[in-house]
Design a binder for these strands. Structure first.
Lengths: 239, 239
DNA sequence: TAGTGGTCTAGACCACCTT
DNA sequence: AGGTGGTCTAGACCACTAG
């Protein structure tokens, strides 16, 4: 849960950095000082700092200290798993979700292979489009294993599917493998998306797993190319 | 360096997983057992396991153990910073780099803003294309700060720029911020790339920083859309 | 209940930067 | 030389899963 001491320290420090209460370019207090401030041992402080470093808040330099990085200059979405709803809440635009299809189906061969399904497993297929200011710019095709999600309604799909999954069903998402490619717009794209003169869509295919390591969902998210943007922070692993 | 005990343990275990000496879906030995095997304390083992978890090798489950994930099924490039040369070495295709331009220049206003440069700082501008089996599919435009890279030759640019930077100059890359978008092909794309009937390119813009947190390089990497693929592994942070 | 991973601690030693 | 972060240890307690 969110009550580990090092998570609390991480949250406190990342908030200070976001609010620019600690200036970018300056040094964080030393690990020993932070230990006194938060009444924590040095290893606990170091866990919080390692998390800040992974997420692009600080750069640690041996013998010197932890430099605060400039989080404001770049639009900086902590790269990871965020649902559409979480994204939409951060922006000023009006988003809307339309559910075009919701069926319980027998998976075809391709889907069975991709999701590694048994013969008797049924999946929910959900097709939704996401509109910003009246323009449909994202087409989402979700496939969810019925064994894990027994019931699904259009109403749930129109609001937040992830809310339902995590809060109501109590399932916990663990990780996802994603693949990004660019493809020609297909029939469904033209039907459901407000296509500009562009003829391409960015396709993000994800395999989503629970904390139990069970595969849970396959998603194909098709973005109008001119509206797509992906931001990433990556550290070099010197081994 | 790469001689930390937990890195050695990480390498040993990740290699075993890659070689499928430990089957996907099975459990790793317990942390205490691993501690005995590697003659390390539990916290050191846990550091190695945390790294395996971050990189998609295992899923830890409290009270149960560490499940080995299927690394083989997906083509699985540890998402992070890898240079062109490192990528090319993994594939069977013949790659080739062509240097089209190499100049020391005064940055224009836009570049000065993006890279946060002083008035007197000069930058190396390098334009290169990358060909696979004779087709030019990637166009790289690099801008390197001359204060950090005093000398640069076409020969270096044609071989590995990163080798030179890390081994000869002794600079250490720390992290990068990347942004991926899709854009219409421009004049330069048409000149340097073997364009198929596609009219779009995927543009990856990166700000690359040293371990000292100094900005070092700005890169615009333009990929022929049909040859672009980006794979990512992401964990959900439950806070 | 026993065994697993999750967290936290206090202390030690090393490598690196600064003066 | 003194202070910083980097690593490692041994031990403790908690939370969760299993039989």
């Amino acid at each position: 849960m969110g009550k580990s001491k090092f998570i609390l320290i991480y949250n406190a420090l990342s908030e200070k950095i976001h609010k620019q209460e600690i200036a970018a370019g300056s040094l964080l207090p030393t690990e020993n000082e932070l230990g006194e401030q938060f009444k924590a041992s040095r290893e606990t402080i170091r866990k919080a700092l390692a998390m800040l470093s992974r997420n692009g808040y600080i750069q640690k330099i041996q013998g010197k200290g932890s430099i605060v990085l400039d989080v404001s200059r770049q639009n900086f979405p902590i790269s990871g798993l965020t649902s559409f709803r979480e994204l939409a809440n951060h922006s000023k635009d009006t988003w809307r979700t339309n559910v075009h299809q919701l069926v319980l189906m027998k998976p075809d061969d391709h889907l069975k292979m991709v999701m590694n399904l048994h013969d008797d497993q049924m999946v929910w297929k959900v097709i939704r489009s996401r509109s910003v200011n009246g323009e449909a710019v994202i087409l989402d095709k979700d496939y969810l294993i019925q064994g894990l999600v027994p019931i699904l309604t259009a109403d749930i799909c129109e609001h937040s599917l992830y809310d339902y999954i995590e809060n109501d069903l109590g399932l916990k998402i663990g990780f996802a493998k994603k693949e990004i490619t660019v493809e020609h717009a297909g029939v469904e794209d033209k039907r459901y998306l407000t296509m500009s003169r562009d003829t391409h869509v960015v396709v993000v295919r994800s395999l989503v797993y629970l904390e139990s390591a069970e595969l849970f969902q396959f998603t194909e998210s098709r973005h109008r190319a001119d509206k797509f943007r992906f931001v990433d922070f990556a550290r070099r692993e010197h081994q």
